[in-house]
Design a protein around this nucleic acid. Structure first.
Length: 570
DNA sequence: GCCGTTTTCGGCCCGACTGTTTTCAGTCG
């Protein structure tokens, strides 16, 4: 049983408990546990199997530890079955609808016998909901609207797409003279690989003018709510954008508050409480007196902490690290000396070798690697030994002409099903670098897939495992693979893992990057560019490295060319 | 249901907006 499934069961139990009217803090404990499980870098199943004490995890007590063990061992979550006997399990599904929370769902169930989405739709269409106390015609029509949107709701927006929306939107708002500061907060600022919505924070003394400008933006399809200090809109792309206006004196407190994560905020507020302070989005208060709030640094100072980079604010140890003065010195995009994965028009890239090199040179890189596909990927016109040798000759010639950038001869070679690499060692030996990737047989079992990669790593020509999970955000799940075993093997063999910076991949995000770092395996942040424009995705990969607490020293392509060559030689 | 360097009981983050009210409950973030 995967962590995600354990988390889903806990969420479901929390939903049903909440609808039933259980102690809200008990409900919170279950939700909190779900989020701990989701964020765990290790499968809880393994921890149970190894007899580890789950109650040692903060937020998991004796009761939950026992429930997790039973769930993992039997597939049953004690308590959930009992609840499901008393109430229809589909009720938790209704929680997915906006505007519908536990109280209303309970009312709908008790008054109208609603126990599923289908039944909800029927009573709404029959006009029965508007007659219930606390409901009205407005709510009824919104429920119908929500149901119709539900099917295409289930995806989050990729960070790169969000960036494309943010740029123009912020520029549009910033034209208003009344706005003194503007910042995008939320998971966007924490640089998560996907965002659920955008949270824009503005400092202004004239919130009315800001609200008017925001809600009348030409891309706004619908204004969901609009008050004096806060508004929510949906853009034509269906992306939700929340705007919050505060006075300049509160900007730092509000920025901290709206950057989150929620778990981080709760922890910080608790610390404030212990010091007799109260923190809200307007500032830090001692009694009724406001003592800080203009900058984020001020807010952190009040709880005796240095400023914490947003990428770390997940309440996964950053507060303790800050307190003990051991926050990491996170890698910056400017630390990157070269891009080690890109394609040319020889295979499925859009630009020629010369164009790719020129574009990389303009970015100021010291080196790059050309890594076209290998022969197995016929769809992409993959290179066989002969064509690869031609490219090697072309690159040698180019290197003779160029002074300021070194072009490494490489290949993105397929890892075949049996773990062999898709080109003979003789030709791989003529290269400076290999990126080894899986492009076929995604459906293999975890054991088979893992062994396939481990065998490939035994080849001393194996340098970097390309896009290690194979997931495509919102499109394709990661293949089943035991990354922990792979990372361990990489540490022994001197292999590296890629942090693929393609907007739809970003597949060593957050906790996997953390695993890499802890195991002492170097990450290679690479764009996998298929066109000169794609070289600019580097910052997305660097952001994921930062979310994994990585410093310059944890990455391969922050090294000098000489150091790099030493590592590639294994 | 969790947690504890004052606590094994009694707390648990808190403000904004909407819709349905006529002073507030429910929901959200």
């Amino acid at each position: 049983m995967h962590n995600a499934e354990i988390a889903r069961k806990f969420h479901e139990l929390a939903d049903l408990l909440e609808i039933q009217g259980a102690n809200p803090f008990r409900v919170r404990a279950y939700r909190n546990a779900a989020s701990i499980v989701e964020g765990s870098s290790r499968p809880l199943e393994d921890m149970v199997a190894e007899g580890e004490d789950l109650s040692a995890i903060k937020g998991i007590g004796n009761d939950l530890a026992g429930k997790i063990a039973e769930l993992v061992e039997t597939g049953n979550l004690p308590g959930l079955e009992a609840l499901q006997k008393d109430m229809p399990a589909q009720l938790s599904e209704l929680m997915r609808l906006d505007q519908l929370g536990p109280r209303r769902i309970r009312a709908l169930n008790e008054e109208l016998g609603v126990s599923s989405l289908k039944e909800l739709k029927e009573v709404a269409e029959a006009g029965k909901i508007r007659k219930l106390a606390g409901f009205g015609a407005r709510t009824e029509s919104r429920i119908l609207e929500e149901i119709s949107k539900l099917s295409d709701r289930d995806h989050r927006t990729r960070l790169a797409e969000a960036e494309q929306v943010v740029g123009p939107l912020v520029a549009y708002l910033d034209k208003l003279d009344e706005i003194s500061r503007i910042e995008v907060a939320g998971s966007y600022r924490r640089r998560k690989e996907t965002v659920g919505d955008l949270d824009i924070l503005v400092a202004s003394e004239n919130s009315k003018a800001v609200m008017e400008r925001f809600t009348s933006h030409p891309e706004v399809a619908k204004v969901a709510s609009k008050g004096k200090t806060r508004a929510t809109v949906f853009l034509k792309s269906d992306l939700q954008v929340d705007l919050r206006v505060v006075k300049a004196d509160s900007f730092g407190a509000a920025l901290h508050y709206f950057t989150g994560s929620r778990a981080h905020n709760v922890a910080i507020r608790k610390m404030a409480g212990e010091n007799g302070l109260k923190i809200n989005e307007y500032g830090v208060y001692r009694g009724r007196k406001r003592i800080a709030g203009k900058t984020e640094t001020e807010v952190f100072e009040q709880v005796n902490l240095p400023w914490i980079p947003p990428e770390l604010r997940e309440n996964k140890g950053e507060i303790e690290a800050a307190r003990e003065g051991r926050l990491p010195d996170l890698v910056e995009e400017s630390d990157i000396r070269g891009d080690l994965h890109m394609h040319t028009s020889a295979t499925d890239g859009r630009n020629s070798l010369e164009e790719m090199v020129e574009a990389a040179r303009r970015l100021g890189y010291e080196y790059i690697a050309i890594t076209d596909h290998s022969r197995r990927l016929t769809m992409a016109n993959g290179l066989d030994a002969k064509r690869l040798r031609q490219q090697i000759a072309d690159i040698d010639k180019l290197n003779d002409e160029l002074g300021d950038i070194r072009v490494l001869k490489g290949i993105e070679v397929d890892i075949l099903e049996d773990g062999k690499l898709d080109l003979p060692d003789e030709v791989l030996n003529e290269l400076d670098i290999t990126v080894c990737s899986i492009h076929s047989r995604f459906e293999l079992s975890e054991k088979q897939q893992t062994e396939r990669v481990l065998r490939a790593m035994d080849n001393p020509r194996f340098n970097i495992l390309g896009h290690p999970t194979g997931r495509l955000i919102n499109t394709r799940e990661a293949y089943q693979i035991d990354l922990e075993a792979i990372i361990e093997a990489a540490a022994e063999r001197g292999c590296c893992l890629e942090l693929n910076a393609q907007p739809s991949r970003l597949d060593l995000a957050g906790h996997y990057a953390g695993m890499l770092r802890e195991a002492g395996v170097l990450g290679a942040v690479s764009t996998d560019a298929h066109a000169t424009d794609h070289l600019r995705f580097m910052h997305l990969g660097v952001a994921q490295a930062r979310r994994g607490w990585m410093e310059k020293k944890h990455l391969l392509n922050t090294r000098t060319l000489k150091q790099l060559q030493g590592i590639l030689a294994r």
